[in-house]
Simulated scan of single mutants.
Amino acid sequence: MTKYLISFRDEAVDYRDEDVADIAEASSAMTREAIAAGVFVFGGGIKGGLEDAWTVDEAGVVTDGPYPESKEHLGGFIIVDVDTLEDALKWAGKCAAACRATMQVRELLSGAEAR
């Protein structure tokens, strides 16, 4: 099994207030489906906006917000553990439909690869 990060950019989401409840329910239903299928590892939306973010550099210096030149910011994600890339792409399609946003799929390094 391989873990994949399925994520969307905050900028990709443009919900009308009246759509939020339907999108939240669809997202929750998709998550319940992933749990039932045994592929769900972890996931969630990112709380707040850029004003609620912090940046920590390699020296440990903390500043408010992301670097000003950043144009894309993570809006939410799910990690799935599946047999193939094709399986991950199918789950990304379900996520995209539920969240009404384009998803990005990236394979996560295993513990040995990350070293």
Rank of each mutant, 00 (worst) to 15 (best):
D57P: 07
T63F: 03
D87Y: 03
E33A: 15
A37S: 13
A59E: 13
A26P: 05
T84Y: 00
L50E: 12
S28M: 13
A101I: 01
A34L: 04
E33P: 11
R106Y: 00
A37K: 12
V105K: 06
E86N: 05
A53C: 06
A29V: 11
D22P: 03
M103I: 04
T63K: 08
E51V: 05
V20R: 06
I35E: 10
E51T: 10
D83L: 09
A53S: 14
A37L: 04
G93N: 03
A101Q: 00
V62C: 09
D57A: 01
D19Q: 14
I35A: 08
V62Q: 01
K90C: 07
G93D: 02
D22V: 10
T63L: 10
G93K: 02
M103L: 08
K90A: 14
V61M: 04
Y67G: 12
I79L: 08
A36D: 15
F40W: 12
Y67L: 14
G76D: 09
V20F: 09
G38K: 09
E86W: 05
D64Y: 01
E18C: 04
C99M: 07
K94L: 09
V82R: 07
V56W: 00
L50C: 09
D83H: 11
M103V: 06
L74N: 02
A112S: 13
S27T: 13
F42K: 07
K47P: 12
W91D: 00
G45D: 06
H73N: 07
A21E: 14
I78V: 15
Q104V: 14
K94A: 09
L85R: 13
A36I: 02
R32H: 13
G75M: 00
A97W: 07
V41F: 00
F77C: 04
A24L: 15
H73A: 11
M103G: 00
A96T: 14
E72D: 13
D17H: 11
D19W: 10
R16V: 11
Y67I: 09
G44I: 08
Y67D: 13
A96L: 09
I23R: 12
A88G: 06
R106Q: 10
G45F: 05
G75Y: 00
A53F: 03
I79P: 07
T102V: 12
W91Y: 02
K94G: 12
G60A: 09
A26G: 08
D17E: 13
A98F: 00
C99G: 06
D52S: 13
G60H: 07
S27V: 09
G48S: 08
